[in-house]
Amino acid sequence: MPHIVLIHGAWQGRWAFAAWTPMLEAAGWTVHAVDLPGNDAHPERASDATLAGYTRHVADLLEQLGEPAVVLGHSGGGITASQVAEAAPERVRALVYLAGMMLPSGVGYGDVIAQCQAADPGFHYTGIDPFLQWSADRQTSWVPPDAGVALFMHDCPPAAARQASQRLCAQPETGRVMLNQLTPERFGRIPRIYVECRQDRSVTLPLQRRMQALVPGAHGISLDCGHVPQLACPEALTRALLPALDGLPMPPQARPARA
C-alpha cells in the first residue's frame, strides 16, 4: 500500500484532511496526516514552528516509513513539502501542491503577490490578512470563524465549514512567513503535481498560476472549487489526483530493487 503524507497549512492541524482520508484509504493508500509543531495539537512547541522545525518533523516521519512516500502540502504546507524534498529527496516519491505555495528558492509569497501586481495593474489582492487577529506582540495570529468560512470554505457544506472554522488555531508567525532554500539536484529531481483551485479566495488563481510559471514542470490539475477541495469536493479531488499520481514516473530512489 503506497504512503501519502498530508501537510496542513496555517492555522490548521491534521483534522483538515479528515473528510478526505477515508477516500484515500479506500483507494489503497496509507495516509499519514501530520500535526506540525506549534500548531493545533502541539501549541507548546511554538519554538519549533519554523521551516526547519516543520521539515525535521516531516522528514522524521518519512524515515520511519521505510519507503518513499508522496508528500502533499495544502496552502502554506506547500513550503514545508518543498523543503522536505530538498532535505530528503530519497524519501519522496512525488510532491503534490493542493492550492499550495510552490515557491522558488528564496522567493516569498509576498514577492509573488508583488509580481502579480506589477504585471497587471488591475490585479487586486487582500486575502486573509485584513481579517486576522493578533497577539499583543504580533508574533501569533488567528482567523475569526466567519472570515475562515468566507475566505477558505465558502463552497464547503455549511455545517462542515462552520465546524472546521471553529477549529482554526493560533499560528506562530515564524511558521507562516518562510523562505525555501532549494536546489535542482535535490528538490528539482522530484516529480510534482499542482492542483489549482479556480474559485480560491485565499491563494487566488492568478497567484497559483504565477507560482506554476515560476517553478515550471509540475503536472497541472484544475478544479472548480475554493481553497479547501479536500472538504468542498473530496470525491472530485480523488478522481483527478490519483490517476495523475499513477501516471508519474517514479524517481530512481523510489523504484523497487530488481531481484
Rank of each mutant, 00 (worst) to 15 (best):
T30Q: 15
E185C: 05
Y125W: 04
A27I: 01
H227G: 13
A257N: 10
R201S: 05
L151C: 15
P121W: 03
W142T: 08
F152Q: 02
G188M: 14
L248A: 02
T80Y: 02
P130R: 05
A85M: 13
V177Q: 14
R91T: 07
A164K: 02
D129F: 11
M211F: 05
G122W: 10
D129P: 02
R258Y: 11
V228S: 11
V215T: 06
M178H: 06
H32V: 10
S202V: 09
R186L: 06
Q83P: 08
R210Q: 10
E86C: 13
P252D: 12
S135P: 12
L62E: 11
Q171G: 01
E25Y: 09
L214C: 09
P121K: 04
Y97D: 00
P68N: 14
R239H: 08
G108W: 00
A87G: 08
M101T: 13
G188A: 12
E44I: 03
S135G: 10
I190L: 07
L72P: 03
C116D: 03
F152T: 03
V58Q: 03
W134F: 10
D35P: 13
P22W: 06
G106M: 04
L248C: 02
F152N: 07
D129A: 14
A19Q: 08
S135W: 05
A114E: 08
A159Y: 07
S82Y: 07
I128E: 01
F123K: 09
L179R: 01
V143Y: 05
G226W: 00
E25R: 15
C197H: 04
